[in-house]
Design a binder for these strands. Sequence first.
DNA 1: TCGCGATATTCAGAAAATCTTAAGATTTTA
DNA 2: TAAAATCTTAAGATTTTCTGAATATCGCGA
Lengths: 232, 232
Amino acid sequence: MAANILIVDDEQAIADLVEVYLKNENYNVFKFYNGKDALNCIENEKLDLAILDVMLPDVDGFSICQRIREKHNFPVIMLTAKEEEIDKITGLTLGADDYITKPFRPLELIARVKAQLRRFTKYNPSEPNQEEHLIAFSGLVLDMDTHECTLNEKKLSLTPTEFSILWVLCSNRGRVVSSEELFHEVWGDKYFTNSNNTVMVHIRHLREKMHDSTEHPKYIKTVWGVGYKIEK
Amino acid sequence: MAANILIVDDEQAIADLVEVYLKNENYNVFKFYNGKDALNCIENEKLDLAILDVMLPDVDGFSICQRIREKHNFPVIMLTAKEEEIDKITGLTLGADDYITKPFRPLELIARVKAQLRRFTKYNPSEPNQEEHLIAFSGLVLDMDTHECTLNEKKLSLTPTEFSILWVLCSNRGRVVSSEELFHEVWGDKYFTNSNNTVMVHIRHLREKMHDSTEHPKYIKTVWGVGYKIEK
DNA sequence: TCGCGATATTCAGAAAATCTTAAGATTTTA
DNA sequence: TAAAATCTTAAGATTTTCTGAATATCGCGA
């Protein structure tokens, strides 16, 4: 059973974005733009994890966190804008299991989410631990824990960006992912580019490291006019 | 069976924080923000240890400690704010098995808790104690009791911070721990910084003491763009 | 086959992350 | 209270990674 995750952020764009990332990883998402609705949700749903913006207009993240601690108990990840003054947020992040500063990269978020879920289920062994941090198929293994990638038992040393791209491609295995989509999934909405051959360059490096030829790519195939895909 | 621990502090943030740390270590936590509820809990639950704030608004920690001594008998750790005047708290900490001044570091708290539990179960050998205070693997031994570290039978004299970092890395062996996460785990939520290379400097010292080269580190490996890890 | 737009390749400079060092601040110990 | 040990900070060096431009190649349709 997929985990239920609560996301609360008054910046709708951020909340929506996080929702996309989480759904991409097959989580059930409960999304709210204010603290009040979130508190309501906490009472009525069986949640597994919460991602809270520290600064909310009505009920701040800290208070929500406390409520979670009181009755229920599941991991809490706090979101803080980097510019936010330290004295304003210090204390507010107390009690959180982890915190992430905005802007963040999607995969970073996902990695933290998985780490928390795993840590939690580790101490609640009744819940089955679904190896969410591993992608493995036909000789290719991606481990988000160690950031390691193995191809036919041989370790590939990938850069963070390369790893992210490969992860996104693999988790969308069997489906074509466009350059733009790839860019969004890997870099987030942090950056803007329209002439986007950066992705291409990284794909090139990936293929090189995987000894994948461009002509007959075994792994990363290019679909003309659409994007890239990895066969199922 | 995990130990039952009572935590009482009127500063909710502190109590919540302690709860997080304890639950991390798989303890059952009974948390209260006032003395009254705590006294109630003492009567109704089979507790193994109590962590009490000295200064509570209703029933002070000293009184709670006395009550524990009267009927039940399990270790008591007192929490005292550093600024609190000595003459106010002296006497109040009497009867406690240990006391910790706020702010404290997560690992320090855990270490003290484990020490008390172990000391207690030593004299009550009926209770099995599987609390882990030792980490040992491939020539490296860490003992949280003595804060001692041995590498291939040779003792390394680590500073408290160094020890904590190594402990966190070792207890997350096989997984990358980011700089932020390390900071979070070692220094606690209290100290919030997002740009500091303190962790890095300590890592450097650690590697030096372990005779671990930066180029081919046998122990603490850096995963670019992600963090540090120790191989499983 | 040719032309054109999409995709590849290459590489050098920019940017980012990490490492190193050392000085000054703080804490602990004697 | 002084000395020693430890921690933090900052600046600059180094390494790794990313990006954008220039150029080459490919695939599709006319």
